[in-house]
Design a protein around this nucleic acid. Structure first.
Lengths: 192, 192
DNA sequence: CCGATCCGTTAACAAATGATAAGAAAATGA
DNA sequence: TCATTTTCTTATCATTTGTTAACGGATCGG
């Protein structure tokens, strides 16, 4: 099963077996039941996860309300990256939306791999670049497009999984609008 | 003068002289007059810049209008990172807002340094992480805060340079609102 | 010095979005 | 199965934001 993670990593950069063996002993399987948390607001996130099956969301809290801003599906990494990088308590909570299987390993291990191996350092760079590119695209959407255009953008992106598998009020959060507003947008679009 | 760049890099990770010497021969000084462009929409960005003096902005074009979403001040890196990373034509234009002095070098050189040296690869990782953390914070602000809160956030951040040195209609762009709306927000705040 | 341009404010109106509540359909769980 | 919860829609009203236009001050170049 751990090969799923290896394949994911090799999509960024080829990883000699020697390097892979440095990580392998630290991998664990972790199963979360629906509603369980991987990382919590106020706690320092010390683990990296890889979603084998299931899906998760992360949310911030404002005025006591959860505001979901990201979703994780199978075959992707999950962590509070900011908390890991800065080593500070996170401001978001990551929660399983369904029963979810993860492969996990300590962020401290990844950091030590950065020191031990150029290949792992490269993976870290490419992962961060990939992350930054995604954030940039999404932020530009928020700055340049209105709510309806953002929903259309999501429809035409490679993130359809979100439309298909996520409840609408959470998609509204993700788009930065209210569920009521998203419902209106959908109605407007369906009339065209 | 090139030491300014070296100091900047060393704030991320210590760089042995040997590694610095790999980059040094490729550094050039470049002066832009007010209004000149460092990178243009539709062109592949092939250079990394470091702002020695002056300031710049980058903007996207929507319906023929410029939408400024970022500012660069002295002592910071400037480039169309997405265009560099993906090797694709950029969708933004980077322009000098005043006469600006840069240190520049080809992105291709940085890429080769990634191959030649673990220390440079590390710098690349840390720079990307720093970039991602900044994008994440700003995106969260866009999703969680209304326009007035975003302006207050900017006021209380370590980005006051923007308030002090940037025309208000461009700050409005940066916040994702219209200049008229920002003017109203400022009026509301001043009444308190 | 003068004209042109840029910049910020204000007003009036239109459009979009938020807040709240009600109701119905669908999913969930005992 | 039945009650409960979740999810989505719709309506109403308030608020915010966008749009357009006008005005005056500031800045800039000749």
């Amino acid at each position: 099963m751990f090969d799923l993670l290896r394949n994911y990593i090799e999509r960024f950069t080829s990883l000699p077996d020697e390097d892979w063996q440095l990580l392998l002993p630290h991998l664990l399987r972790k199963d979360l039941t629906k509603g369980a948390c991987f990382s919590r607001e106020g706690k320092i996130c010390k683990e990296i996860g890889f979603v084998v099956s299931g899906n998760m969301r992360h949310y911030y809290t404002k005025d006591g309300e959860e505001r979901t801003t990201y979703f994780y599906f199978e075959n992707s990494m999950v962590t509070d990256y900011i908390s890991c990088i800065l080593g500070k308590p996170g401001s978001l909570t990551i929660e399983a939306m369904s029963d979810t299987s993860l492969i996990v390993f300590p962020y401290a291990i990844l950091k030590s791999l950065y020191n031990q191996s150029h290949a792992w350092e490269r993976f870290g760079r490419l992962l961060s670049e990939y992350l930054a590119a995604g954030l940039e695209e999404r932020m530009t959407g928020l700055l340049m497009l209105n709510a309806e255009e953002r929903y259309a953008q999501l429809l035409n992106s490679n993130r359809q999984k979100i439309i298909e598998r996520i409840p609408q009020h959470l998609i509204a959060n993700y788009l930065g609008i209210t569920p009521v507003s998203l419902s209106r947008i959908r109605k407007r679009i369906s009339k065209k």
